[in-house]
């Protein structure tokens, strides 16, 4: 019964995510103007046919910047996700499979990292390395892998106690084969669900750090940067704040709907 309700949410989420994906992919064809073209004579214009959402403080097309901003945001979210999992999957896998002292050592390290609020820690790292997108990526990956590694470890622990793993061990398969073929494959689904739940969070964190000037650097269009650039116009041109704000909100909503939906489905599937 609840499956239908969840499906509805997932479907809406998928539509949103797909739409954003297409916008990012076809940005050059969709954008009505060059997002970097500065035209001081067109500063802060109201929406018109040539600039559907008006122009910003440097006379750049706001819609085009939003569209290209989708590209920046999604690309970096995916990059962060990929690098976080590139660290957390092997670490979680080894900790869960090896157990004993190795597990203990890894888990204590993770506990230390988790003791810090992750966003504050990545903020500090980015500020130290100097503000730029690659540094932002690095700081996120360096801090955020810990939480995921712990979840992956617990998934691995569950799978490890299954009979077929015992069978594989008994039949003399190597550790590598067991870890990759038997455990990782079976852990893929929960990891995928975990990833989809977290996309929204990462997207938001990237926008947040860019808002503070630690992420995307000018002239790259990015939602958080657009938000911070519009801040001085809060009273005179509030619409400039609304556009990137709404873009972020809908994107996060879409990813969260998909993520939560997948998780619910998985729960249902397990309960059944």
């Amino acid at each position: 019964m609840s499956g239908i309700k969840n499906n509805y949410g997932i479907r809406l989420g998928l539509v949103i995510v797909l739409a954003y994906g297409l916008i990012a992919l076809f940005a050059p064809w969709l954008a009505p103007a060059d997002p970097l073209h500065v035209q001081m004579s067109h500063k802060l214009e109201l929406p018109s046919w040539s600039y559907p959402l008006g122009t910003d403080h440097l006379g750049r097309c706001v819609l085009s910047r939003l569209i290209y901003g989708t590209r920046t945001s999604l690309l970096y979210t995916l990059a962060v996700l990929a690098s976080v999992f590139a660290i957390s999957i092997p670490v979680g896998l080894i900790a869960g499979y090896a157990g004993g002292r190795i597990d203990q050592a890894i888990m204590r390290l993770i506990d230390v990292l988790l003791a810090f609020p992750s966003l504050i820690l990545s903020l500090a790292i980015t500020a130290m390395l100097g503000p730029s997108m690659p540094n932002l990526l690095l700081s996120f990956a360096a801090v955020w892998w810990a939480g995921y590694a712990r979840v992956i470890r617990s998934v691995v622990l569950q799978i490890r106690s299954r009979d077929y793993i015992q069978a594989a061990i008994a039949s003399g398969s190597s550790h590598g084969t067991i870890m990759v073929r038997h455990i990782l494959r079976n852990a893929a689904r929960p990891i995928l669900v975990l990833a989809s739940v977290e996309v929204g969070t990462i997207l938001l964190a990237i926008a947040g750090l860019s808002f503070l000037g630690l992420g995307a650097q000018p002239p790259v269009p990015e939602w958080g940067v657009m938000l911070s650039d519009s801040r001085p116009y809060m009273q005179t041109e509030p619409r400039l704040l609304l556009y990137p704000g709404i873009a972020i909100m809908i994107a996060v909503l879409g990813f969260n709907l998909v993520g939560e939906g997948l998780r619910e489905q998985r729960k249902d599937a397990r309960a059944a």
Partner: peptide, 25 residues
């Protein structure tokens, strides 16, 4: 525990953005 962590992180990220906007408000 993990879910708690996750929601806390989600919350933190929200806090940062709302905080930034709230700077003005």
């Amino acid at each position: 525990n993990n879910m708690l962590n996750r929601s806390r992180r989600l919350f933190l990220a929200w806090v940062l953005l709302t905080l930034a906007i709230a700077l003005v408000l």
